[in-house]
């Protein structure tokens, strides 16, 4: 590397909560949250374009859905990240996950982790979304296999489940 480049390598310690677990990393400014999460072993966060076109890397940052490829790791300092694995798993599936499985909403599955996180943010924002709301909420998440229709129906089903959980709890 040139002298100019070596001079500005200023690394910084960054504390991030990932799926409830405290992680401490030391990275330079230009490392993205996507890169850091994958280096931490969170391979469920997928990389599809590295420029915010596809949404495969979507995660929740303090509850808001972001493209982790366009989020600098430094800007995630002190904040909480949720990936699809943090949402639930086989023992404690989130209603969105159950619905995605039951509706056959994943084909190749590569867009699925980001898609589910965008759907989670959508339902947090609009608990009873119309089809129009769902389409708008997912327009940054590309899927090439499904035609999105089963993704829409899964989100509608999950919204219904969440509503029922709300009323019974």
């Amino acid at each position: 590397m040139t002298d100019k480049e070596t001079q500005m390598i200023t690394e910084k310690r960054v504390d991030i909560q990932v799926n409830g677990q405290a992680c401490e990393i030391t990275v330079p400014a230009w490392r993205t949250l996507l890169e850091v999460l994958r280096e931490l072993g969170h391979k469920e966060v997928k990389c599809g374009c590295e420029k915010g076109d596809c949404g495969a890397c979507a995660v929740l940052l303090d509850g808001k859905v972001v493209d982790s490829c366009l989020t600098l790791a430094w800007n995630a300092a002190g904040r909480s990240v949720t990936t699809v694995q943090g949402l639930g798993g086989p023992d404690n599936p989130h209603p969105l996950q159950t619905a995605f499985i039951e509706h056959g909403s994943a084909q190749c599955g590569y867009c699925t982790p980001g898609m589910i996180m965008a759907a989670k943010a959508l339902l947090d924002d609009i608990p009873e979304p119309s089809l129009k709301d769902i389409k708008r909420g997912l327009s940054g998440n590309l899927c090439r296999c499904t035609g999105y229709t089963r993704i829409f129906s899964a989100i509608q089903a999950a919204a219904e489940t969440l509503r029922q959980q709300e009323t019974t709890s």
Partner: peptide
């Protein structure tokens, strides 16, 4: 704003 990019970009 409704037709600006996608959710993630709208948030950023």
């Amino acid at each position: 704003a409704k037709v600006f990019a996608g959710s993630m970009v709208r948030n950023a």
